[in-house]
Design a protein around this nucleic acid. Structure first.
Length: 808
RNA sequence: GCCGGAGUGUUGGAAUUGGUAGACAAGAUGGACUCAAAAUCCAUUGUCCUCACGGGCGUGCGGGUUCGAGUCCCGCCUCCGGCACCA
């Protein structure tokens, strides 16, 4: 290395901090740019995978600043949650202590990367200054009827001893620890996100600058379906139940009905019958079985109740079954089964020898399975002959006329379970009083501080339950004895609004000043991992909409542009501590420097894609920086003070074209092509110098190069900016403009093809006309040779790029 | 199974609207410099045929549209991510 990267990197890191280059305040006179990365859990050790993400964010911050935006890039810590708590259990250290030291370590590593933030706005979700407003927010949701406590079957992780949200159960296993998840019935707090299902779904359409795959995932997660609900009478006893279907048009094909094992009507149906025992045994088996066992069984199981329901359209008696494949939590927990059109019903019918009636005419050679497609209705009474859509309309109208059913919409989305039986989280601000019941803690008493405990180990209830003098309190309403809620909040509550708090992080009076939020919001660029495509982004959208309804936030979508970066892969697995394949940056910092690491992270591939770590890649970008250094410092060759020559213009053209290209690339997050554009420019300018460059021209070209390089490799760019006699802070310099006259290509290569194959090429004037291009092509000896004896059928002329001569 | 996304040299990747496939790197080979090595610089590097000029083939596979397809359409294969009995 021909320059001391360690020294200059330390120098500029200090300079940016000392000059507060990236600390900002609201300034209505300038356009703002609000850039947020998904705030990290403070794990202490950053590896190359993290650096990739931080490099992208830092590049955006620096670029937008140079483009003249009042750019806010804050940083904070997602410091509540299981990792810190598990660490505390392992080591016996208080989570607050380990978290604090991890944060110090991570800040140091970010500083070494040259990543810049407005550190004045730093926040950490485990601090009372922060979680106080989690609690406040919780109370607001409660007052708006959006937070409620209910007994519900929940996903229980036996290892972590806590409840998990549906979203945190991956294939029947705990997202965190991988243990098999059980079902339990507990009293839990929920947020009523389903009230916002329609808005959360509809507004996905407004998120034009989100990746399609994330929008699709969100749509699927919300899972809207349109159909009808109608009531069926039980034949033998005086009882009825509702079913939901997306295919009411197939109701004539119903040959049985199914209730979920937990359906409240089941007991009544079988009470006192000889089926009671079988049904109860099946229910118990279903309750015991974990999700994974249910899935592993594969084929459909069920049990006949001995009762029948009456199909309202034709009076047919159909047997009622109880089966696991019907879920209590979706629709009405009961279905009409139409095996002719639904594969699950088909499988069940085949297994239990039930009748199958087709009510939609399948294609001719279609047999042996359910036909869910469109077609003409058959065996369907007054619907016969109609198409799917019309039949649906007709039957729903009929249900409504009869007063037994109606059109309705269902969502897959469930309410958000926010209770956690863990220590390291924000206490839920409620007390329960024998006299008054569940009572919210008054806002003036917030925060409800998380007490110190000796033992963090979960024992089925929150460790907080053991802190008697904390749990026992007085009722805010009647003053009598009361007990505190001992559950803490899901950490996704913390992360659903932190981007709002950044706008006003030290406010002691309120969650934030709406005026400041109005200035900064929405987040113009949000960057994070695609693993948060569903949960975090959905919750953050939900909370933003609630705050919008409360009049505190003007926007009702928080993130204007979303970028989800790929993972860094090594040895075939995501680089992570738990996989044991992390590459620590320290050695690379020492050997190549932060700038070379940053450039390699940018260079290695498209930011959206997973990238594979390669040990010697950094060497390539380090060599490039060396060439930049030599070019700017004169080591690459002397330049002369002399008059203008034609090739001086070429050097400027190269610089201006690079400016146009790099700008375009950064705008569309194509960093892996922006770096090569600078490499090419450097190579061209080096070549220019070796052939005898002109001082003034080189100085101008290098000025452009350094400004373009500045967001990507800021330390070396700043150092060279200073060494080449520029006394301004490069980070605040305007982004280079380019002269359209220089960027425009005046001479271009005309490709001459015969039957689509390149046969000759020629430098031509860019303004060449179609006839002239055609004439030149036909005049080419190579083209003529290829035409030979053949007939010229036609000539496609697309000046100035290409002429194709079609010969038979 | 359903919904997304991807498949290009030895490797990472480029080709932004259908118009020169392989930019820029990494690696490799040869050369210069050196007592030697490292570093640096220069050259070559998809594949096959040819001494060469030049030509054939080539973007997972099979078809198609087009003057022209890595790019568009149809049918497959493989890999990655998400969801998974949602009626």
């Amino acid at each position: 290395m021909s320059y001391d990267h360690q020294k200059i990197e330390a120098k500029w890191q200090e300079r940016w901090a000392a000059e507060r280059t990236f600390n900002v305040v609201e300034d209505p006179s300038r356009p703002k740019f609000y850039s947020v990365q998904m705030y990290p859990y403070p794990s202490g050790e950053l590896h190359m995978g993290h650096l990739r993400n931080y490099t992208y964010v830092d590049l955006v911050t620096r670029y937008r600043t140079m483009r003249g935006f009042n750019t806010l890039a804050p940083m904070g810590w997602d410091s509540f949650g299981l990792p810190a708590e598990n660490y505390a259990i392992q080591t016996g250290t208080h989570p607050a202590d380990s978290t604090a030291s991890q944060i110090v370590k991570m800040k140091e590593q970010l500083r070494r990367l040259g990543a810049v933030y407005d550190w004045d706005r730093e926040l950490a979700s485990h601090t009372p200054e922060y979680y106080r407003w989690d609690q406040w927010l919780f109370l607001q949701l409660y007052h708006r009827g959006l937070a409620y406590k209910a007994a519900a079957p929940v996903n229980w992780c036996p290892r972590d001893q806590t409840v998990l949200a549906n979203e945190q159960v991956i294939e029947g296993h705990c997202e965190r620890c991988g243990a098999e998840v059980e079902r339990r019935r507990l009293s839990q707090w929920f947020f009523r996100i389903t009230d916002y299902a329609e808005r959360l779904l509809a507004d996905i359409d407004t998120l034009d600058d989100w990746p399609d795959r994330v929008r699709t995932m969100q749509r699927n997660w919300i899972g809207r379906s349109e159909g009808a609900t109608f009531t069926m009478q039980v034949d033998e006893i005086d009882a009825a139940f509702e079913v939901y279907t997306t295919r009411p048009d197939t109701v004539f094909g119903m040959t049985f009905a199914v209730l979920a094992p937990e359906h409240p009507l089941v007991d009544e149906l079988v009470a006192g019958t000889d089926r009671a025992e079988d049904v109860r045994a099946y229910q118990q088996k279903a309750a015991r079985a974990s999700e994974i066992e249910r899935l592993a069984e594969g084929d459909k199981t069920g049990v006949f109740t001995g009762r029948h329901a009456v199909n309202p359209v034709n009076g047919q008696r159909v047997p009622i079954f109880v089966a696991e494949y019907v879920l209590l939590g979706y629709g009405t927990g009961a279905i009409m089964a139409v095996p002719g059109q639904d594969q699950r019903d088909w499988d069940f019918a085949v297994k239990y020898g039930l009748e199958i009636i087709r009510t939609v005419q399948p294609p001719d050679d279609f047999e042996g399975e359910a036909y869910p497609g469109d077609g003409v209705a058959v065996n369907s009474g007054f619907l016969d002959g109609l198409g799917l859509d019309e039949a649906k309309e007709r039957i729903i109208a009929w249900f409504e006329d009869q007063g037994i059913g109606h059109r309705n919409v269902n969502y897959r989305l469930r309410d958000w379970l926010v209770s956690r039986q863990r220590y390291w989280g924000a206490p839920i601000p409620f007390v329960s009083c024998d006299a008054c019941g569940l009572v919210p803690v008054p806002e003036s008493d917030l925060p409800v501080l998380l007490p110190e405990v000796e033992d963090y180990t979960p024992k089925g209830a929150s460790p907080l339950a053991a802190v008697e003098d904390w749990v026992n309190t007085v009722c805010p309403d009647c003053g009598g004895p009361a007990r505190r809620e001992t559950d803490t909040m899901d950490t996704f509550v913390d992360s659903s609004w932190y981007f709002l708090r950044y706008c006003d992080p030290h406010n002691q009076e309120s969650i934030f000043d709406p005026a400041k939020v109005a200035y900064w919001m929405p987040v113009d660029q949000y960057i994070g991992g695609v693993e948060h495509a569903i949960l975090h982004l959905l919750y953050a959208r939900f909370i933003t909409k609630v705050l919008n309804d409360m009049g505190l936030v003007e926007v009702d979508e928080p993130f204007r542009r979303l970028f989800t970066q790929g993972m860094l892969v090594k040895d075939g697995a995501k680089m992570s501590k738990s996989k044991g394949n992390v590459v620590a940056p320290d050695e690379y910092y020492d050997r190549y420097g932060a700038d070379a690491i940053r450039l390699f992270e940018l260079f290695m591939g498209p930011p959206t894609d997973d990238a594979v770590w390669s040990d010697n890649g950094v060497e390539g970008t380090a060599r490039f920086l060396d060439r930049v250094w030599k070019l700017a410092t004169g080591e690459a060759g002397e330049v002369a003070d002399r008059g203008l020559e034609p090739r001086d213009r070429d050097a400027l053209v190269a610089a201006h074209r690079a400016a146009a290209k790099v700008t375009d690339d950064i705008e569309r997050f194509s960093f892996n092509t922006a770096v090569p554009a600078l490499m090419t420019l450097t190579n061209e300018l080096t070549d220019y110098v070796r052939r005898g460059g002109r001082r003034e021209t080189l100085d101008e070209a290098v000025g452009i190069l350094l400004r373009l390089l500045s967001p990507m490799a800021p330390h070396i760019a700043h150092e060279l900016w200073e060494r080449t006699g520029r006394d301004t802070m490069l980070a605040r310099e305007p982004w280079p403009e380019w002269d359209p006259d220089l960027v425009r290509h005046e001479r271009v290569t005309l490709i001459m093809q015969v039957n689509g194959k390149v046969r000759d090429r020629l430098e031509v004037d860019a303004g060449i006309g179609a006839e002239e291009a055609e004439r030149l092509a036909l005049a080419s000896s190579r083209v003529k040779e290829r035409i030979g004896e053949g007939q010229v059928e036609k000539v496609i002329s697309r000046p100035p790029k290409l002429v194709n001569v079609v010969v038979s």
